[in-house]
Design a protein around this nucleic acid. Structure first.
Length: 590
RNA sequence: CGGGGCGUGGCUCAGCCCGGCUAGAGCACACGGUUCGGGACCGUGAGGUCGGCGGUUCAAAUCCGCCCGCCCCGACCA
């Protein structure tokens, strides 16, 4: 492609709204343009990279037996009602009515469509196992799109669905994806870790998220460098050390003015935070014979710990969980800042499992300005539920080996779920097994957002000057920059001939044939980030040569014209080898 | 949904507080000329309902109200 013909404009300055590097550079280099919040177009360069990413996904999916298909973006709401997700999912779902006033849904994911096809077409164990996938648009009306392509509302996802006759089959396909996903990310040039995760709206039995570690990430991960345990903080387990046992002391009311926070309370009483109990008020939307009902939740964790809302929501099986408002708190009879589990009625009390083992805590007295000392679980109050509802923090002990845990930020670039029979049951996907018994099909679902992946690659591979694409996903393999081609016929001829030779020999080449100054061309080349750059100028043609430079290295060297093709071919292969060396087997962490 | 910020040619921004000239600059764009190995220079030119609506005023980019959009933090989220 000649740059003079390319549909592309590079920007000297990044738009003011772009903050993270990948966003700024992808916009400046002309890979993407924003249409609205979380809605982007991919221009030709961006499209080429996306296509390469998608082809890598295709190859890896096909390698584990995947079969590509395409499912619709617009669905009748009926199938989403069958699985209840029409009711369970809130504003994130795109809904509209067609001309016949029929409820319609914009695809957020495709379990329902898969299940609908499967229940009609799969009859026998002989048709299992299967693995199907497609690369298709999703719409999720995220309340807060951010960071360019990192979090958007409309995006393209490679999603695959495994169909099995039994759980062993699911496990096998799950593990196949586990490795295939590592292969995809490694081939795209980004390091990732797989962490155990919450199953979220997908439901199901087991899930892993693939995390690209970066400070701009929005998920917090908990990692054990000693034994390799890693999990999303939303569900991370950790070892809680109970305090030394103490004889329960008689409860005692103490005056604690202006001590409305744990911090202030601990300071005022000169006690460590772990000797206090923290009350957190939430409102959960819980299933209630067929419908849903808002229930006030009084959650108690030790003062030195934080409530983990995901854990709490999962334990309660809550559809939604939010912080209670001040009015709601007062309505239950609790006094904000001095709330106490002692003597409360008509609320659901959930207590962290460490509280039981922590004697003589300071808790609120439900009276402005007073706390109770020596509050003991069991004696002074009890809970409806005792469970692990606290969040792991930096330095907490690893659940497996006891070593201190570390937290890190990451972007979720992919996920895999063992769905089990959640969708099969809801939509009646059954097959007749060998033994003549009708059984539900066991499903798994697996997704990678291709645009987000592209942004992560850009995040990982760039410098001050611009993007530095790994050879596997670069829009072009080589860029020819001609300097003074409009003045020197010799330069023009050599550059044109080189371009044509590469085209003929199947090398993907971008040719900057514009009548621009050298500075502009070099700047644009660096911005766009094609892995190999060849410069043709008066200076080089005099020596029958071109200048060779890799985007990821600063050295330049002259290559004789007669050897250019062989050199480029060789260097492309070297670049591929570098990537290939990173594609490794990763032990399954179940 | 809560908190904060921003909306002025394609991009980056000035002007707004303290209302008043034809609304500016740099980059980008078009034409002419000079340049030509790291975002060159000179000249000429095109391009803006100052996010929208309403209000105050003799007069609004500027003051007031409502709305919309975009970004950031939080809540939420595959």
């Amino acid at each position: 492609m000649r740059v003079s013909q390319l549909f592309n404009v590079t920007l000297r300055e990044a738009p003011a709204e772009a903050e993270v590097a990948s966003h700024q550079l992808l916009v400046r280099a002309g890979f993407i343009r924003q249409l609205a919040a979380g809605i982007f177009s991919y221009l030709p360069l961006g499209r080429r990279t996306l296509t390469k990413i998608e082809n890598i996904m295709r190859e890896e999916m096909n390698a584990i037996g995947g079969q590509e298909m395409t499912m619709p973006v617009v669905h009748p709401a009926d199938i989403w009602k069958e699985t209840q997700r029409w009711y369970q999912i809130g504003t994130e779902m795109g809904r509209f009515k067609d001309k016949n006033n029929r409820d319609m849904v914009l695809a957020m994911t495709h379990e329902e469509v898969v299940a609908d096809i499967v229940r009609k077409d799969i009859r026998s164990y002989r048709q299992l196992p299967r693995l199907i996938y497609h690369i298709q648009t999703k719409w999720r009306d995220d309340p807060r799109p951010r960071a360019g392509l990192i979090r958007v509302r409309e995006f393209t996802m490679k999603d695959s669905y495994s169909l099995d006759a039994d759980w062993e089959g699911l496990d096998k396909q799950y593990r196949a994806h586990y490795q295939a996903y590592f292969n995809i990310f490694h081939r795209c040039g980004i390091p990732v870790i797989a962490v155990k995760s919450d199953v979220g709206m997908m439901g199901g039995k087991m899930a892993h998220e693939y995390m690209y570690l970066t400070p701009i990430g929005e998920d917090t991960l908990v990692i054990c460098d000693n034994c390799g345990y890693s999990a999303n903080r939303q569900i991370a387990f950790f070892k809680k050390t109970p305090p030394p046992p103490e004889e329960p002391l008689p409860a005692e009311k103490v005056y604690t003015p202006e001590a409305k926070t744990i911090e202030a309370l601990a300071n005022y009483l000169q006690i460590p935070k772990q000797k206090t109990a923290k009350a957190v008020f939430m409102v959960a939307t819980l299933p209630d014979d067929g419908g849903y009902k808002d229930t006030f939740i009084f959650a108690i964790v030790r003062g030195d710990m934080e409530l983990n809302e995901t854990k709490l929501a999962n334990i309660l099986k809550a559809k939604e969980l939010r912080s209670a408002t001040e009015e709601e708190i007062i309505a239950t009879g609790a006094v904000p800042g001095y709330a106490s589990p002692v003597g409360l009625k008509d609320v659901l009390v959930v207590v962290d499992d460490l509280i039981q083992q922590s004697p003589n805590l300071v808790a609120g007295a439900n009276e402005e300005g007073y706390h109770l000392k020596n509050v003991n679980y069991g004696r002074d109050y009890s809970a409806n539920i005792v469970a692990d509802i606290t969040a792991a923090q930096d330095g907490d002990a690893c659940i497996r080996c006891g070593a201190p845990l570390r937290t890190a930020r990451g972007v979720e670039v992919g996920n895999i779920f063992k769905l089990g029979t959640r969708y099969s049951d809801a939509m009646g996907c059954t097959f007749l097994d060998k033994d003549g018994v009708e059984k539900p099909i066991i499903m798994g679902s697996y997704g990678i957002g291709s645009g987000r992946l592209m942004a992560c690659i850009a995040e990982e591979h760039h410098d001050d000057q611009g993007l530095i694409w790994p050879i596997t996903v670069a829009p072009y393999e080589v860029e020819i920059v001609s300097l003074g081609g409009h003045q020197s016929e010799k330069v023009q001829t050599v550059a044109d001939r080189l371009y044509q030779e590469f085209l003929d020999r199947g090398i993907e080449v971008l040719y900057d044939d514009r009548d621009e100054s050298p500075g502009v061309k070099f700047m644009d080349a660096d911005l766009i980030g094609i892995p190999i750059r060849l410069t043709v100028s008066e200076r080089t043609v005099q020596q029958d040569a071109v200048e060779f430079k890799r985007r990821d290295q600063s050295e330049k060297r002259l290559v004789q014209l007669s050897e250019v093709y062989a050199t480029v071919k060789h260097e492309i292969e070297l670049l591929h080898q570098e990537i290939r060396s990173k594609v490794i087997e990763v032990p399954f962490e179940g």
